[in-house]
Design a protein around this nucleic acid. Sequence first.
DNA 1: TTGAAAGCGCTAACAT
DNA 2: ATGTTAGCGCTTTCAA
Lengths: 332, 332
Amino acid sequence: MKSRTAVRMSDVAQAAGVALVTVSRVINEPDKVAPQTRAQVEAAVRKLGYVPDRTASSLASSRSRIVGAVVPTLANVWFAETMEGLAAELGRAGYQLMLAQSSYVPRAEAGLIDAFLGRRVDALVLTGALRDAAARTRLRQMHLPVVETWDLPARPVDMAVGFSNEEVGEEVARRLVKAGRRAIAFLGADEQRSQMRRAGLERGLQAAGLPLVAAEYVPPPSSIALGRELMARLAAAHPDVDAVFCGNDFIAIGAMMWARTNGWDLPGRLAVVGFSDLPIAEATWPPLTTVKVRGGEMGRRAGAMLLARLRGEEPPRKVEDIGFEYVERSTT
Amino acid sequence: MKSRTAVRMSDVAQAAGVALVTVSRVINEPDKVAPQTRAQVEAAVRKLGYVPDRTASSLASSRSRIVGAVVPTLANVWFAETMEGLAAELGRAGYQLMLAQSSYVPRAEAGLIDAFLGRRVDALVLTGALRDAAARTRLRQMHLPVVETWDLPARPVDMAVGFSNEEVGEEVARRLVKAGRRAIAFLGADEQRSQMRRAGLERGLQAAGLPLVAAEYVPPPSSIALGRELMARLAAAHPDVDAVFCGNDFIAIGAMMWARTNGWDLPGRLAVVGFSDLPIAEATWPPLTTVKVRGGEMGRRAGAMLLARLRGEEPPRKVEDIGFEYVERSTT
DNA sequence: TTGAAAGCGCTAACAT
DNA sequence: ATGTTAGCGCTTTCAA
């Protein structure tokens, strides 16, 4: 089906009356060609509507100008924003983004990475720390630029930009305890980074001599409806709970809805803290206290780190802590 | 930097004691190889950790197994969901998704499409009807499978899956008029499909003998904050307005916030209708009446249509109307 | 500054 | 069922 009539570099060369290599140079290293020759070639390119076949150039140069990224899912704004920032950054340098979703299945990741390697991607962006040991060593051996995001692995495959999910939990614990809460629970998705936040919360509470009253989970992806369910379960098992830290804002909003429906006053009877600061967190009633993470910025930084590497430079830092911000609104 | 030590097909062939083509067959058409030979080859593949170079196979076969998609931005859930569905569908058939963002700049689209063509993508997914005439004819001449989404172009480039943005507007007009509203306005982003919804609203009002009281715009991307601003502008210019149709749910939520702040009772004094049904639309207070569009399903259908085409089949329909649903909640 | 020749790693006919 | 021979459209030496 592919038109055999595609214009090739040799066609352009012929039309411009130069050798094929010269056309290649005009495209890749224009300065190395005499202005006049270049003009001829450029004219021919325009006239014929030539679009270089990057599939061929990838093979010949073994540089694809493609960056592969693995996310659990695109349907979650926070990862989508990271990809938005990443794609924007990469696009400015002529790199393309190739995307794959692990659907929160940890073992799927290695396979997706393999597919990317088969595409000869120039670099890789991962969500969270890469678990698969074989894949880790493989990537390291290849010296492929890799950025892990949304986490701060102790020993990154290569580079990382993220924040400490544990610290998020600890900070929330400190805030809630300081606000006088004593029966604190966790509601979240049963997924790696969410668990890290729970662990942090637990540790923070321990430091204050408090137990984690309960932790309820749903399999990802989470939703408002699941948040409501989790809260219902929690309230049934622990009617004395006075604060919940939710793995993300959807769950938090679900918990808030349950509270409203069941006459639990917010924040009087129950404090709710979310995570990720969705745009609507400030529009809920009452406005939701949550932890803000700059997802888009994470993507942009990841892109910048990769581009530096691809230019042959060493990025200033191999691990960037982008931090997080506890945004106190009215549910605490 | 790329390791010259990459395992090639010839290495596998040698290790398995067969010809190179045989390895290729084991990978691409396993049934055409004797079970025993196949086993040998597969063993060698595993032993050497061979990953086929798809960049080379793309060049040789002129099929890349890549689908390119252009979205205005990934940061908007609705497009992200479409991409999620698309990637999921394509992934199951071994196709990869390559993504590019037009950032709502209409003229950027043609360039992004060119970049994809240079990558020799096997198919293309676009958001909205493709405006650029040159690009349209070019794609048609190439017989490249193309799906336009989020709209129902009268003359699609190739295939389409979406809904009529005008009809959405008309339906909202009918509902609001029926509910007794008489001073109806539109708030939206200054972007193609949003304008189509406004046009539909206007036409629907005309049919009822009513004028569109006002239409206020902001440049995309829109946000809750911008929605609030728009509503402020509208209220200042037309204090008598009794209903607003918003180009999307963020704007609608912004309008609601303005109303709450300024003591406009919802839906008594003002009716608000959103568009796209964000997950939080049902969690606002009062729950937001909006128009629901199944973004993920659109992506899945687009993927299915493309895959059919790529298999050489003709999809049952070239244009699929996925419809929309007016979800009446409590702001009307 | 420009060009000629030799691949990049695979698939597509065509044998055998 | 398996193998042989030519490329796919570029980039990369190296030479002029």
